[in-house]
């Protein structure tokens, strides 16, 4: 299975949920399940899609998150109050979860929940 390499960074205290490590390098498959199931071993091509940010968020929850998933995800996406930058650009400009990831992309997750 071919994979792509991504750089993941955390800001605003979100790293506390990810073993207090601010920067991660991960490899994820190029083709993934349409329902974002990260445990699928053999992929049925009819139910596959190119890997996107939505899958990445599920991957992070299932394989990187160390505690309290509810502080990271809500309703299948990142929790309100968590900002996402894809290659230094607001993910709202890139189609949010539908952005198709490319090899070498840098994705930053910033929590604003630490408030004032």
């Amino acid at each position: 299975m071919s994979t792509i390499s991504l750089k993941i960074e955390f800001g605003g205290g979100l790293e506390l949920l990810f073993a207090n490590q601010r920067s991660h390098r991960i490899d994820i498959p190029c083709r993934v399940s349409t329902d974002n199931d990260t445990t699928v071993k053999e992929l049925n091509e009819k139910e596959a899609k190119a890997v996107d940010v939505s899958y990445l968020v599920h991957h992070m929850r299932d394989h990187m998150l160390k505690e309290r998933a509810e502080l990271f995800m809500e309703n299948g996406t990142v929790r309100p109050g968590i900002l996402v930058l894809i290659n230094d650009t607001d993910w709202e400009l890139e189609g949010e979860g539908e952005y198709q990831l490319k090899n070498g992309d840098e994705v930053v997750f910033i929590s604003t929940l630490h408030g004032g």
């Binding site: 800001g11 605003g12 900002l83 930058l85 910033i110 929590s111 408030g115």
Partner: peptide
């Protein structure tokens, strides 16, 4: 907004 503050910090 809080978003702008967070982006400023980053």
């Amino acid at each position: 907004g809080m978003k702008e503050c967070a982006i400023w910090d980053w």
